[in-house]
Every structure is written in C-alpha cells, then in structure tokens.
C-alpha cells in the first residue's frame, strides 16, 4: 500500500511540474522570443491599409464575387471563409452532392470568365480547400481570371498580369510545395492602384 501512495504522489507532482514547465514556462518563452524576433508573424501576418484598418491576414483567404476582384477557391468554412469555423467539405469521391456543387461551379466559372463551354477548368477553382481558408489560387486559375479583372477595372492586361506575378508565393527553395497566387494581397494591390 505504501508503494501505491508513493506512486500517486509521483503522479500528482509530475503532473503539476509538467504543467508549470511545459504548459507555462515553455509557451511563454516561445511567446517572448516570437514577439521580439517575428512580431508581425507571431500576431497573424495582418494586412493593414493606409487608413490603419485591418483588412485581413496574408495567410487567410477571403471570399470575392465581384468581377473586379480575383476570386478565391470555393470554401466550406462556415458560410464561406469563416475564419472561426475552418474545415473542408469532407465530401467523398462518389458523393452526388459534391458532383452537383462542382457542376454548378464549373458552369459559373466558364461564364464569368468568358470561356468556351468545353474549356477545361483548373481543379482548384471549383473544389473546396482543406481549411476553407486557402489564401492561394493556382497560377493557371489566376491567368484565366486576369482578362476579366483587367476589363472590369479598365486596366491593360499586362499590368494585371504583372501584379499577379508580384503577388505569387513561389515554391520554397524552388522545390518544396507549389507556387500560388495570394488572392487577398493581389486584390489589395489592385485596389491600391485604383487609389481607393
């Protein structure tokens, strides 16, 4: 019995010590160093306009429907890009609901971007992301949207295309992951160009 009580003391005290060291000191050390070394990133990579208003995070997508904005991927987070309700559609490969949604999105994408009715559509443009907050679209998706945006804003296509390139996050070290166009940063740059 004495063995048992000794071991219970060990269990209680080790739990308390780990709570203090691993759940108190450790996160506070990371907090302190993170705030000093990477202040902007530790606080959410927020994008602020020239009036000082927070317009979003560089890392989180937003929903766009107007022609003058590049449009993000479909989102299953809440009612769309709800950053307090992240997640995917979780619809499987033989889901009829998913097929219905993709059919509708393909038809919308083709008509909005003035594509032929049999044009192939980039997969990312008509499928929901894993987080529902994907900040990126593929380069081909951006290329297909660029003429629409240029027309809606009365800008030369080359100007829009150069902004797309300026707001493309490349693959890390050129090999890791995929390049993607940051939609929110790009749309903010377009608005800044328009002077609003």
């Amino acid at each position: 019995m004495k063995f048992f009580f000794n071991e219970i003391r060990g269990a209680v005290m080790s739990t308390l010590m780990m709570a203090i060291v691993c759940c108190g000191i450790y996160p506070l050390v990371v907090f302190g160093l993170g705030q000093v070394l990477f202040h902007d990133k530790a606080n959410g990579s927020l994008l602020v306009d020239k009036d000082g208003t927070i317009r979003g995070s560089r890392l989180l997508g937003q929903q766009f429907t107007l022609d003058k904005y590049f449009q993000s991927r479909p989102s299953a987070a809440g009612n769309g890009y709800d950053a307090t309700s992240s997640g995917g559609s979780n619809l499987g490969p033989t889901s009829s609901n998913l097929v219905a949604a993709i059919t509708q999105r393909i038809s919308d994408y083709r008509s909005q971007n003035n594509l032929a009715t049999n044009a192939l559509v980039p997969a990312d443009a008509v499928t929901a992301s894993g987080s529902g907050l994907d900040p990126h679209i593929s380069l081909r998706n951006a290329d297909l949207q660029a003429p629409r945006v240029a027309k809606a804003r009365n800008l030369p296509l080359e100007k829009v295309q150069s902004l797309v390139r300026a707001n493309t996050d490349p693959a890390d070290f050129g090999i890791l992951g995929e390049p993607g166009v940051n939609v929110l940063a790009l749309n903010l740059a377009l608005d800044a160009l328009a002077g609003k």
Binding site: R73, S89, L120, S129, G130, H136, E178
Partner: peptide, 30 residues
Amino acid sequence: KGNPIHQQLGIAAADGNMEGKEVRFGIFNS
C-alpha cells in the same frame, strides 16, 4: 490521377484530386 467523375464534368485531369487540399501543398505534399 484524380477522380474520373469530376474530370468528365470539365476539371483539368492534370490537376489531380484537389477537393480538400491546399494550393500551397498540392497533390504530392498532401
């Protein structure tokens, strides 16, 4: 290889199955 049902609807087959995946990771890293 992706989902042939979705590819018949008009999704580019070369893009693979992107439902539930993030652009920055793509098919391989997912």
